[in-house]
Amino acid sequence: MLYVDENGHIDAERISLKIFKNIERGKMDAINGIVVHQTNAATASSTFNSYQTKGANGAHFLIDKDGTIYQTASLLRVTWHVGKTQSRCYVSKKCEPVELKMVSDLEKSWKNSTRVHRIEKSKVFPHRYPNNIDSIGIEIVGESKIEGGDEEPVYEPVNEKQNESLKWLIKELTETLSVSINEIYRHPEIGRKNATEASTARW
């Protein structure tokens, strides 16, 4: 179990505090899930620089290439790390018939992703995926590159040290925050993201 102080900061030997107020939004009232990302930046310092700009998006943690874990936002504050979510009932094939037809029609065009996201935002958990207001974000340093004739960039593999740190961090967070292991996701599993993001992350 982790010790979390009144500011939502963790006091643990394996975690370095490097809080960026710019990425913190409103108060987080509940934590229902964890979302694993990759930064699309080659270094931690590049990500930290981006976190210092006004209105920056970011996550609660960042795992560097050497396995160092940084806490970058309070566990009591929302960060914008998920973006537009997919329909949980559509992905899991558990929609009621009326909603299934509506979402199926919307899914035919990428332009309707905002409309699907609005429908999901109106739902309460667990009828939707965890999103910005109720999930912890973990970034792993790793950029994407165009490979061969691929049109979409491919994220570099998460290395062994990063995966070891990720495994430890998720174990501690799920125990400390009472988050179900079934509510841990790679970003593309719930959002509209490059399918290779965090695809090699292991926990």
Rank of each mutant, 00 (worst) to 15 (best):
M1R: 10
L2G: 06
N7P: 00
G8P: 10
H9Y: 14
A12N: 15
L17W: 04
I19D: 00
I23T: 06
G26K: 12
K27N: 10
D29V: 08
I31Y: 01
V36R: 13
Q38R: 03
T43A: 11
G55L: 03
N57D: 15
G58Q: 06
H60E: 11
H60W: 00
H60Y: 02
K65A: 10
K65P: 07
T68Q: 14
I69Y: 02
T72D: 10
T72K: 03
A73M: 07
A73L: 06
S74N: 08
S74I: 07
L76F: 14
W80H: 13
G83W: 12
G83I: 10
G83Y: 08
K84I: 03
K84R: 12
T85K: 03
T85S: 12
T85G: 05
S87P: 08
R88Q: 11
C89L: 02
Y90I: 01
S92E: 12
V98F: 12
K101H: 07
V103W: 02
S104Y: 04
S104N: 12
D105R: 04
E107I: 07
E107L: 07
K111D: 13
K111R: 07
S113M: 10
S113F: 02
V116T: 11
R118G: 08
E120L: 06
F125E: 01
F125M: 02
P126S: 12
D134A: 04
G137A: 10
I138L: 11
I140N: 00
I140K: 00
S144R: 11
E151H: 12
E151T: 13
E151Q: 13
V154C: 04
P157G: 05
P157I: 02
K161D: 15
E164D: 15
K167M: 03
W168A: 04
W168V: 03
K171C: 09
L177D: 01
I181H: 12
I181Q: 14
N182I: 00
Y185L: 06
Y185R: 00
E189Y: 04
